[in-house]
Write a protein that binds this DNA or RNA. Structure first.
Length: 291
DNA sequence: AAGTAGTCCTGAGTGC
DNA sequence: TGCACTCAGGACTACT
């Protein structure tokens, strides 16, 4: 569920506790995440200062004073919380589908204790399904790291142009929905925003990617950017809610047009939203609006 | 080479 | 109430 906007929201929430701070203690309660952590993970992190916390696609990337980079992926159910004193505030935005229970401490897998700027902050990575993972990349290896090799452009950067998008779609026979989920085509789009962008652009998810190249591709390019930008904007307001933390805070109400709305009326024309399965994943669409 | 199915994991939801 | 079952999905592997 955490797609680009959710990861970006987490980045913004985590940055104040991490940037400029040093790892004073790293605890691995459960090193067997999606992929095993490097053997010397804790040792290599300890004492390192976080120069900056960035994001690439759905990955968080902490650039360290040692020259190494700490890569973090939330997988399906990964969440971070930042504790200061007795306060434990969630830094996440994947409650888009409704209220979620507070993190179960049994699934607190990695704990960072930070010193320096953001002193005293305790950052906890919790992930019940363990689809998330972390990795350390040696200096200079970021571009060629297996996680990032061949990854498509950042959709909100200037490198993601309609021309480049169209060129990538050309010659692909897979359905456009599947192409959008391919991180080599464009980074950071997952199942939810693929559905939403296709709805926004009025394009059937079943259409072959190659047939989207052209005017449809231009529309889809704009729709991808729009849905991602709006979701980041909405996520930002969630963070502010958490910052206030004045009790009884409401859950972030994210309005999806089609995602998880099977049988409910299309917001544009009222036709029943349909759910189909493409490569084993649910796709939601308006059969009238999307051609 | 590109596309697709299977896999990992746990908790929530559903039906009997 | 409880049990069995399905589903959620990011990204990797193994095939066709």
């Amino acid at each position: 569920m955490p797609e680009l906007p959710e990861v970006e929201t987490v980045r913004r929430g985590l940055a104040p506790a991490m940037e400029g701070a040093t790892f004073s203690r790293v605890e691995l309660r459960r090193p067997d995440l999606r992929f095993p952590l490097p053997q010397d993970f804790a040792r290599r992190l300890s004492g390192a200062r976080v120069e900056s916390l960035g994001r690439r696609g759905k990955y968080l990337v902490a650039s360290l004073s040692t020259g190494e980079s700490l890569i973090m992926h939330l997988g399906m159910s990964g969440r971070f919380t930042v504790e200061r004193g007795s306060d434990r505030a969630p830094v996440e935005d994947n409650r888009a589908l409704g209220p979620e229970a507070p993190p179960d401490p049994r699934h607190d897998h990695v704990i960072f204790e930070m010193a320096g700027r953001g002193a005293g902050a305790r950052i906890v990575f919790n992930d019940p399904r363990r689809f998330g993972f972390m990795d350390l990349v040696e200096p200079g290896g970021l571009e060629t790291a297996s996680h990032f090799a061949g990854m498509g452009p950042e959709p909100l950067s200037e490198t993601f142009t309609p021309e480049r998008f169209n060129a990538t779609l050309k010659g692909r026979s897979a359905p456009i929905k599947a192409a959008l989920l391919d991180q080599h085509v464009v980074a950071g789009v997952g199942n939810i925003y693929a559905c939403e962008a296709l709805f926004r652009a009025g394009i059937s998810p079943r259409r072959k990617a190659a047939s989207v190249a052209g005017a449809r591709g231009v529309r889809l390019h704009a729709a991808i950017r729009a849905v991602l930008e709006e979701a980041i904007e909405a996520g930002g307001s969630t963070l502010r809610d958490f910052a206030d933390a004045s009790g009884g805070r409401g859950y972030f109400q994210h309005n999806f047009d089609v995602y998880d709305r099977e049988g409910r009326p299309c917001p544009a024309c009222g036709t029943s939203v349909r759910r189909i399965v493409q490569s084993g994943r649910s796709t939601f669409l308006c059969p009238a609006c999307q051609r």
